[in-house]
Amino acid sequence: MNNTFNIQRFGLLLKRQWLEFGKIYLISLLVALGVIVAFYGFALWKAFTYADSFSPRDLNFREPLFLIFGFIFISIIASSYFAHLGQKPKAIIDLLIPASTFEKFLTGVFFTSILSIVSFLFLFYITDLAFVSKLRGMYTSVEQITPYVHNGKEITSIDHIAYFFSKYSGRDKFLPLYFFPFFVTSVFLLGSIFFNKFHYIKTAICVMIFSGIWTAIVVKSGEWLFEGKIMIDQENRNMNHMSQNTGEWLGVLLIVTLTAIFWSITYVRLKEKEV
């Protein structure tokens, strides 16, 4: 018997965890859907009710909603996953389930980092699709403009009522942003096993403290290195020597490394968890 990983046992564990976690998770999804629909409804009810009252600015709420609410949603899900291990009766049952620590950890990663992110994207996508389709049916969305070239492509029109995800397709993407949700869930998953109570608040406080220290170090070291100095290589002031792509990949590498570190610590904490 493989005592580290067995795909069949892992599947059974996913099923078992769904029994424990699924109901709360589905309720959370419903709440999240309610919040997203409420924002769309509140921002667009005027456009739906009164003719010609739509302004493209009415859709500007989507970016902050996606980023802020997305962060809150995935971090809360991650922060609650191992939280029950802080309670003796629940911890005993869970730790003694005949599955390896690695399988238990992977199940946690699946529910918090994959399922929660995918389901949030799906909820946001279908809500946006429904509301924006309705808007597009009511108003003219495409405006012809004087053609100009952007990133080698000729732009001839602007879609004022674009779907949220198609709005950004074809544009330059900031690659680290794609990995950031995994980083967020890894931090809050660690918080859920590290603390015994008030996991979310305590993790959020720790994140704030560490972010503050990190920012202070960067600012202070920048001041110390560059204060009173001037750039002499004016031609490279935009850091053209390091392409944007390389910078982004370095950002990706940093985020992936940090995520892997946080997941590793979570695994060790789960292994060392005592009742």
Binding site: N3, R9, K88, I92, P98, A99
Partner: peptide, 18 residues
């Protein structure tokens, strides 16, 4: 080590349970 091979041979009935 909490290995599955041992855990499937242990039945633990705790005083407080969930």
């Amino acid at each position: 080590k909490r290995q599955p091979a041992l855990l499937e041979q242990i039945c633990f009935i705790p005083e407080e349970f969930y």
